[in-house]
Amino acid sequence: MLRTLFSPRLVGLHLLVIGVLVAFILLGRWQLGVFTDSGHPRAAADPAPVALTDLSAPGERVTTDEIGRQVTATGTYDSSAQLLVADREPDVAAPGGRASSGAGFWLLTPLNLADGSTMPVVRGWVASPDDPAVDVPVGQVNVTGRLRPPDQSDAVQRGGALPTGQVATVSTAELINLWNGALRDGFVVATQQTPALSATPVAVPAPAVGAALTWRNLAYAAQWWIFAAFAVYMWFHFVRDAVRSNDPESQPET
């Protein structure tokens, strides 16, 4: 039996099947990887900055297509109405939970535009309300940043009331009751400013789009592995027939 299994013809068959199995398994894994990666969000087109007043109008909701867009705005800050958004890291992660070690404040300042509307602007992050960067620039400013949707007003559950001048979320519904003027929806996270930003910039992600899973690639992966199983099945039958044909005991008596 061993002599038959290791005959030149069957050795060639063994090597061919091993090569086929390796190739088919790797092809299946490749298609599975394509299927898995297809569901990951990917970077969307990031158009050049557009004037905020050209993108939307006061009273309009921020749309999905507008979230993450780079916008520019020119106006003056209202220092008397600035708020500190408590328990925030220097990023735009969704709020939640109690203050953690290292959490500070976003500087949320109303920017009064020439058309009479007001846009909430996050000018940066500070570790303490006593940070000198809290001071608001005087006069006209030019701001470039990314547009973000408003937080839900109940997104953060706190154990007690915040001090005067602090809020837990950047909520349009809440700011309407705190600020005067025609308030625009959402808020702008400033990335550049003239005069220059003095606080730690808040990291804000570029827009991303979700992707649908490509089920066809999963089917291709299963197909390659079925081919591999079929190759093993055929190899087994070829080897079995070869062994039987060379086994005297399996030959019919004459």
Rank of each mutant, 00 (worst) to 15 (best):
A103E: 13
A103T: 12
G104D: 08
G104I: 09
F105C: 01
F105Q: 01
F105M: 06
W106M: 08
W106H: 13
W106A: 03
L107Y: 09
L107V: 10
L107H: 04
L108W: 03
L108I: 07
L108S: 01
T109L: 01
P110R: 11
P110D: 13
P110Q: 12
L111Q: 02
N112W: 01
L113P: 06
L113S: 02
L113Y: 05
A114Y: 01
A114H: 09
D115E: 11
G116E: 13
G116L: 12
G116S: 11
S117L: 10
S117C: 12
T118K: 00
M119V: 11
M119Y: 01
M119C: 00
P120H: 13
P120F: 09
P120G: 11
P120C: 09
P120T: 12
P120Y: 12
V121P: 02
V121E: 02
V121H: 07
V122G: 03
V122W: 00
R123N: 05
G124S: 07
W125N: 07
V126K: 01
V126R: 00
V126Y: 05
V126E: 05
A127S: 15
A127F: 11
S128T: 15
S128R: 14
P129M: 14
P129Q: 11
P129H: 11
D130R: 13
D131T: 04
P132F: 02
P132H: 06
A133S: 15
A133N: 10
A133H: 10
A133W: 11
A133V: 11
V134D: 08
V134G: 02
D135F: 00
D135E: 15
V136Q: 06
V136A: 05
V136S: 04
P137W: 09
P137S: 13
P137K: 13
P137M: 13
P137N: 13
V138I: 12
V138Q: 14
G139P: 06
G139H: 06
G139S: 10
G139A: 10
Q140E: 15
V141R: 00
V141D: 02
N142E: 15
N142F: 10
N142P: 00
N142T: 14
V143S: 04
V143W: 03
V143R: 07
T144S: 13
T144Q: 15
G145L: 02
G145T: 06
G145D: 10
